[in-house]
Design a protein around this nucleic acid. Sequence first.
DNA 1: GTGAAAGCGCTAACAA
DNA 2: TTGTTAGCGCTTTCAC
Lengths: 346, 346
Amino acid sequence: MSEKRRKKSPVKITDVARRAGVSPSTVSYVLSGKRTISEETRRRVQESIEELGYQPHAGARALASSRSNVLALMLPLRPGIHVPVVMQFAASVVTEARRHDHDVLLLTQEEGVAGLRRVAGSALADALIVMDVQLHDERVPLLRELDRPSVLIGFPAEPSGLTCIDLDFRAAGAACVDHLAALGHRCVDLVGSPPEVYRRGTGFAQRVIEGFQESCAAHGIESTIHPCEATPEAARAVAERLLALHPGLTAVVVHNEPLVEPLVAAFADLGLRVPQDLSVVALCPDEIAERTALPLTSVAIEAHEVGTRAVDLLMAKLDGLDVPEATLLPPRLTARASTAPPGRRG
Amino acid sequence: MSEKRRKKSPVKITDVARRAGVSPSTVSYVLSGKRTISEETRRRVQESIEELGYQPHAGARALASSRSNVLALMLPLRPGIHVPVVMQFAASVVTEARRHDHDVLLLTQEEGVAGLRRVAGSALADALIVMDVQLHDERVPLLRELDRPSVLIGFPAEPSGLTCIDLDFRAAGAACVDHLAALGHRCVDLVGSPPEVYRRGTGFAQRVIEGFQESCAAHGIESTIHPCEATPEAARAVAERLLALHPGLTAVVVHNEPLVEPLVAAFADLGLRVPQDLSVVALCPDEIAERTALPLTSVAIEAHEVGTRAVDLLMAKLDGLDVPEATLLPPRLTARASTAPPGRRG
DNA sequence: GTGAAAGCGCTAACAA
DNA sequence: TTGTTAGCGCTTTCAC
């Protein structure tokens, strides 16, 4: 017949303390583990917590400890960004943050500097993760002077004094070429992201190009670079252009998620079979490379790994530990069905 | 020569008060607008706030006012969910929340009931938005008994006592058929979401089917329903099956975002031209319908509108206002190039 | 129209 | 190993 707990008077630490026959501070210390507690006391406290369904008041805790246990995550939502990667990243950040007993506050890129300043200044968040960092990003100076630790996903032009993490896109670009070179290709073109992505100084896209070019140079491979919009028409146009430019073209590297399928289709329409006539290496999430009719050889973009590591770095910084300024995740190339030695075409 | 403000001692309300020559409570009231303040006083206070760069401590504020000004948003991250729609929804929730001076805490579906209980119980969030509601969702009973207002995106089997909002999927399913019926089609099939989506009792998918069937019945249209995995192979298989089943088939409705393109391609491969031989209506975001080679007639899934409205409902509830239990957004069909009167085939 | 002061619920010295 | 207590920075009565 006992009444269920009604929508009222949340139980507080003093309630737990009274029931367990200890002081509030003891309850606090049981919860935080910042003090050694006798087994017997701990048990009684845990029991009271359970039975009363006690949940510490987040605001009170933040006020007293100057720690909100909240991370702010600023995500990009603009054209040229591949949405599933962003989501996957967000999901892994939240999951990893929870493992460290933290929650995640979501900020949009358009809130920009003001948003970061606000959540930091109001102590809403005690650390920040910023995605889609540009080479000359207006948020970077702010992050440098803020009193809260932060981790950037991507590298600005001048990353010193910051903590940055990303896939090693330069190595990734090179890895694509290395793979093709090993198969014997001597002419490889790169179909890149939309022009706008390069224009606004997105570091990772440029670094793919650099790695691509360096490896081409090292292997004596003839090559050209083609930024490309993410539409089937653009795919068609670029495919035709490549073939006109390089009759001897035997391989293509593509770094543009939504363009992967249309581009392969465009080459097929032009009568080129993959991989017999043309090898294709994609720089994209495994998910995309595996989902195409013909599974593609690809270098993975591991959003999950990046998100998890970013949170770990942040937690280390919150704990006062030193962390490396730069973390570059090595690329991982998976050979699938879209690459083969060059054929006898042309 | 003045030193820039160094990473230290955040300015607090008493600092602002002292500088403006008023009491802390006056500053508080200027900020909250809960009291009438003389023009002169308000000006001086605003000035001090600006000059000191004052930002109220979120935790202290939450503790004193029992309002965190944070909404929790629980997002799905599982198979069969179209990621861009989720992202768009999240973005509009964050944007609208900011307009109401609230921030958004991100929870993943896998946190489930425990996650909701936690953020509500700890007063981290003072309201909740839950997406991807199943017909028999374990979170629903919790939301009902929680002392915090919530809004559900989607409808459970028993929605009374809750606040739910969604596109009117039943009307949407019907609208697709109505459009085709008006063009003169007498045989229409539905290619739906993956079987798993129906199996787990996702209300919106079932309601599309209901609306589809009702409208077919009303118009005397012959029809069948085909759940379908989101792969090109499955698209191919279902296309062949439909044609075998209904030699007289002249139109298809598709409710499966990632399948839209592959399905159209599959029909093309089978020699059917759209719209001459076959009309296609998609139930998907405009973005997808417009991006295909042939722009598709579609009923829009307006994530943006839903997100914005959900936040507005929540804010109204927080203000103690009464809001409707059910909000169904009327479907909007846009005729594009993929529908036409039935041709003379077969 | 404004001020004084009592908390909000918790943490972390300090004390024992 | 545990208890006492002074805040944390703000909001909101209550009083003027």
